[in-house]
Write a protein that binds this DNA or RNA. Structure first.
Length: 507
RNA sequence: GAUCCCGUAGCUCAGCUGGUAGAGCAUUUGACUUUUAAUCAAAGGGCCUUGGGUUCGAGUCCCAACGGGAUCACCA
C-alpha cells in the first residue's frame, strides 16, 4: 500500500506503534491536560519548598533518553525549553517496561513531582507517563551539553542549510534557539500594529491579485483567472490601493503586506516578502520622519529590551534623534563632487572620476543610484535618514517645496541597507499623470521595471488626494537587523527553494 | 547569469597518488535504581545525488545534469 521506502529504524518504530496498539494503548490520544511549561518549572522551583510543585503535568517531545536499568532519565522539549524527567521502576511498576516502546522524537505527557537531582538538575519525577504521539521517523536530534556558563553546545544537530530550510519543522525541533528569531519577528509586527492602532490608523486589506501592478519598480508574477479569462498580477506593492482609500476619506491606513517580485534571490531578496505601508492624511515627510524615529525606537525597545542592538559585531543605536542627511550633501561628503543638476553625460564623467563602474548606456537616475550605493550607502551604518531625492527616481513623490528637481522623500538606512522609504505623496493630478507617462516612455524604451500607467489610480488622484505622508518598511530586513541574522532565509520560516525533483518512478 | 565549493548510513563527518565502504551519535540486544554529550559489551544498517566516460578496476579522475552554499552581477 505504502509507496514510501522505510529504513530499518522507521520499520522498528512502526513495529513499536503496532505493539502499543495491541496492548490497548492509543498512541495518538486527543488531548492532554498540562499544568506547566518546562521553563515555568525551572524558574519557579524552590529547593526549600518542593511541595509547591508536588504535582505537575508537562508535555513535550522526547529529545534524549538515558536508560540505567530500573531507572531512566529523559529530556522532553516543549515550546519553552527542555526539562528532565526521572522514571523509576519502583514508582511506575509494570508501566516502566513500556519505556522500551518510547523513542527520541515521540511526544509524551508526564505527571509527577518536581525535585532536584544529586547532580543539581531540576527534574520531574514521573508518577505517570503517556504516549501522546508516536513518531515513526528518525529525527535528527543533536546531543546537548550545558556548559558551566549556561550556554548550550549542540553536537551533530541538523546543519545542512538545504534541509533546514526545506524541512523547517525538523530545524525547529533540532535547533530550538531559532525560535527566538521568529518570536521577535512576531513582537516587531505586533508592536507596529499597536503603535498604529493607538493613533487611530486602521489596518486594511487590499488586493493581492491586481489587474495592473504598481507602486514600485519591479517585475511581477503573472497568474490567470479562469472565470474572467484575464491575467492578473501578484502585487509588487499595495501603495496605489492604500492611496485610493485616503482619497475615499480614511485619514490613516496601513497594511502589512506580502508582496511578490519576480526577480533574483539572494541573502536579502526572497520572491515573496513582507512590507509595511502606511499613509496618513494632512502630514508630510518631515512629520513622517519623526514618526519613524518613534516607531523604530518603540519596536527596538519592545522586541530587544534596549535602545541598542548588536548586528554582526556592530553596535547599532536607535536612540533618538537619528542622523538626517540630504542626498546631495552625502554625495559631496563621500565623493567630493557636487552632483546636483548634472546631465547624464556629466554624471558619467563624475562616476568615472569617483571610480564607480557604470554601464555607459545607463540613465542619469541609474548612474546616481550606482554612485550612491557604492560610495555612500556603505557608510550609513547607524540609522540615517537620507532626504530629498531627484524627481526622476521617485514618480510617486511630491515635488520639493523649495528645491527644484527634488522630491520630498527620505529613506532610512541602517548597516548600509535601506529599511524604510517615505515621501510626501504626490497629489497634484497633472504632475502625477505626467510622471507616470514618463515611466511609460521609459518602459517602452525597454526598461520592463518602469511603472505601468494605472488609469484608475490617476482618476483617484484627479478626485483629490489630501496632503498625505506615506511610508514603506521592509519587515524582513528590519527583522534581520534586530535578530542579528544576515540572511533573509533565516527570518522566514519557509524561504523559497527550487522544488526538489520529483522521483523518477513511473517514467 | 558568472565563478568557486559541497552532495558518502537517520544525523555530523572521515575516506591520501584509483584496489571489495569507515567513525561518533542514533537503532537493536545485554548489563546498570540520581544520570546528563551517561557508561560498558556486542550486533544490524550504504544505488557513495543522477547519467555518461577513462580504466583490468571509480566514492576517489574527466564530462554533463540535478540540488545546495558562498562570492559577484542584476534587482530595492
Amino acid at each position: 500500500m505504502s509507496s514510501v521506502q522505510r529504513n530499518e529504524q522507521e520499520l522498528i518504530k512502526i513495529e513499536k506503534l503496532h505493539e502499543l496498539r495491541s496492548l490497548g494503548i492509543n498512541p495518538y490520544p486527543v488531548s492532554f491536560d498540562r499544568t506547566h511549561h518546562a521553563a515555568e518549572i525551572l524558574t519557579s522551583f524552590i529547593d526549600e519548598q518542593p511541595d509547591a510543585l508536588s504535582s505537575v503535568r508537562v508535555a513535550g517531545r522526547i529529545m534524549a533518553i538515558r536508560k540505567m536499568g530500573k531507572a531512566s532519565f529523559c529530556h522532553i522539549q516543549d515550546v519553552s525549553g527542555r526539562i528532565q524527567i526521572y522514571l523509576k521502576k519502583d514508582d511506575l511498576g509494570e508501566a516502566y517496561d513500556l519505556l522500551r516502546l518510547y523513542d527520541i522524537g515521540d511526544i509524551v505527557g508526564v505527571e509527577g513531582f518536581v525535585f532536584r537531582t544529586r547532580m543539581g538538575e531540576i527534574s520531574v519525577h514521573a508518577r505517570e507517563f503517556t504516549m501522546l504521539t508516536k513518531s515513526i521517523t528518525v529525527i535528527p536530534v543533536g546531543k546537548e551539553e550545558v556548559n558551566e556558563d549556561g550556554t548550550v553546545t549542540r553536537y551533530d544537530a541538523i546543519a545542512d542549510k538545504e534541509q533546514r530550510y526545506r524541512k523547517r519543522y525538523l530545524d525547529l525541533i533540532a535547533n530550538p534557539d531559532i525560535k527566538e528569531t521568529f518570536i521577535k519577528r512576531s513582537q516587531i509586527i505586533r508592536t507596529m500594529r499597536s503603535f498604529f492602532d493607538e493613533r487611530g490608523w486602521i489596518e486594511v486589506e487590499t488586493p493581492i491579485l491586481q489587474p495592473i501592478y504598481g507602486g514600485a519598480t519591479a517585475r511581477p508574477f503573472v497568474t490567470h483567472h479562469n472565470a474572467l479569462d484575464v491575467d492578473l498580477y501578484l502585487r509588487i506593492a499595495d501603495e496605489l490601493y492604500l492611496k485610493r482609500l485616503i482619497v475615499g476619506g480614511f485619514e490613516g491606513v496601513y497594511e502589512i503586506s506580502k508582496n511578490f517580485r519576480n526577480e533574483g534571490m539572494d541573502k536579502t531578496h526572497n520572491p515573496e516578502f513582507t512590507a509595511l505601508e502606511i499613509y496618513v492624511a494632512y502630514k508630510d515627510y518631515i512629520w513622517m520622519m519623526e514618526m519613524v524615529e518613534e516607531l523604530f525606537n518603540t519596536i527596538v525597545l519592545n522586541a530587544c529590551g534596549s535602545e541598542t542592538v548588536e548586528f554582526q559585531g556592530t553596535e547599532i543605536s536607535f536612540a533618538r534623534p537619528f542622523a538626517k542627511k540630504k542626498m546631495f550633501d552625502l554625495f559631496q561628503e563621500h565623493t567630493g563632487l557636487n552632483l546636483r543638476g548634472l546631465s547624464r553625460e556629466e554624471l558619467l564623467t563624475a562616476a568615472k572620476s569617483a571610480h564607480v563602474d557604470v554601464d555607459p548606456a545607463a540613465s542619469a537616475m541609474k548612474i546616481l543610484d550606482e554612485i550612491f550605493s557604492v560610495k555612500v550607502q556603505p557608510h550609513l551604518i547607524q540609522p540615517t535618514f537620507v532626504m530629498d531625492y531627484p524627481v526622476e527616481m521617485s514618480p510617486l513623490a511630491k515635488a520639493h517645496q523649495t528645491e527644484a528637481g527634488l522630491v520630498e522623500r527620505f529613506e532610512l538606512f541602517i548597516m548600509g541597507k535601506e529599511v524604510a522609504n517615505a515621501f510626501s505623496e504626490l497629489n497634484d493630478p497633472l504632475d502625477q499623470r505626467a510622471r507616470l507617462e514618463d515611466q511609460a516612455v521609459i518602459r517602452a524604451a525597454g526598461d520592463d521595471e518602469a511603472m505601468v500607467v494605472d488609469e484608475d489610480f490617476l482618476h483617484a488622484i484627479d478626485v483629490g488626494l489630501p496632503p498625505t505622508a506615506g511610508l514603506g518598511v521592509g519587515i524582513d530586513r528590519l527583522v534581520m537587523l534586530l535578530t542579528n541574522n544576515d540572511s533573509i532565509r533565516d527570518v522566514l520560516f519557509f524561504p523559497q527553494m527550487r522544488p526538489e525533483k520529483a522521483h523518477l518512478e513511473g517514467e
